[in-house]
């Protein structure tokens, strides 16, 4: 049995459609129209113990809703899910002791008090042994380099420091499963890197199972081997990071260094010209035509150096999101 098992999980909402204008607002008092939003559309997924899985997807894809379903915040419309054998939306205390949810855009610490006071509250809520609590708190504070800030009011911390405190609060009870919803959102590059390093180290040490949603590919590349891409409430890819290139990376980028600075003027016949800065040029060509194009170019022109690369992962994923959106919009029209 897998640690997390999800079968045909779906969540839909009925949303009030407010029309523009005062007249429409008055009419809305007597008669209202609602639209059903299908946030998650029957997803199937299994996650094994100790995996670090990334959920990727554009805004509104259903990533956060899935995490909220798995943490029991929401009850699904249809479908089933178990995490460590528990049905999350039953909200059993036995389950709630074993996982944690961190949301980058929400704050669970007492705003006007030092984080240490919120940690103390967590100790009592989770019934953590005092010695164990102190050891864990100090260890985490040291790893995240915030020990000196424990007695500073949360409202006076920077966003990065606050997120570190949120992580400590979430980890004090030693959760076996950790749901991270955009934990690095809004952070600068250094703070992002610090949190990535911490999460990687923590996961390696504790073998915790982590589900992460993030818009930053750097988070995903630094931390996860397995990637689940969600778009329009459906899983459209579940596999390795490298596999995304095979599956969706239909194009390759050929970089040329032309000999003697004699830049050919008809490169566009071989593919899409991305850049020409003599003596260098970059072309985007279909993966299946790379050999043919290379042979043709090398036979016609004097080339000093050539390289073939995959386009950046961000670019591929952005295209996947965009294609998927067009598909759904096209399908529904």
């Amino acid at each position: 049995m897998s640690l997390i098992e999800i079968t045909k999980l779906a969540k839909s909402y009925s949303v009030f459609q407010k029309k523009e204008g005062l007249g429409a607002s008055v009419r809305g008092l007597f008669s209202r129209s609602y639209k059903t939003i299908e946030a998650v559309r029957g997803i199937d997924l299994t996650v094994e113990a100790g995996e670090f899985v990334a959920f990727l997807g554009p805004n509104g894809a259903g990533k956060t809703t899935t995490l909220k379903l798995l943490s029991g915040v929401l009850t699904p419309t249809t479908g089933t899910a178990t995490v460590m054998g528990h049905v999350p939306w039953k909200r059993e205390n036995a389950y709630r002791r074993r996982f944690a949810l961190v949301m980058g855009q929400k704050n669970q610490l007492w705003w006007d008090l030092p984080a240490a006071e919120s940690f103390r509250l967590h100790q009592h809520i989770y019934n953590i042994d005092p010695q164990e609590f102190q050891k864990t708190r100090d260890g985490l504070a040291e790893m995240l380099d915030v020990a000196r800030l424990l007695s500073q009011p949360v409202r006076e911390l920077s966003l990065g420091e606050r997120m570190k405190m949120e992580l400590i609060a979430a980890l004090l009870h030693g959760p076996e499963v950790l749901f991270l919803d955009e934990p690095t959102i809004g952070l600068d590059v250094v703070a992002q890197h610090n949190i990535q390093t911490f999460l990687k180290q923590y996961q390696q040490d504790r073998k915790v199972t982590i589900l992460l949603t993030s818009h930053y590919m750097k988070d995903v590349m630094a931390l996860c081997r397995r990637v689940v891409i969600i778009a329009q409430g459906r899983i459209i890819y579940d596999g390795s990071l490298e596999g995304i290139l095979d599956r969706f990376g239909g194009l390759k980028v050929i970089s040329l260094l032309v000999a003697d600075g004699q830049m050919p003027d008809d490169l566009s016949r071989y593919g899409e010209v991305l850049k020409i800065e003599p003596p260098r040029a970059k072309l985007r060509v279909e993966r299946s035509k790379v050999t043919e194009v290379l042979a043709a170019i090398l036979s016609r022109y004097a080339i000093d150096d050539v390289s073939v690369e995959d386009p950046p992962l961000e670019e591929i994923i952005a295209k996947v999101f965009s294609d998927n959106r067009e598909e759904v919009v096209g399908g529904s029209s």
Partner: peptide
């Protein structure tokens, strides 16, 4: 505001 999310996660009567 959705702040209730965190309270629903705690192993204590909400």
């Amino acid at each position: 505001t959705g702040g209730l999310d965190f309270l629903l996660l705690k192993p204590i009567d909400t």
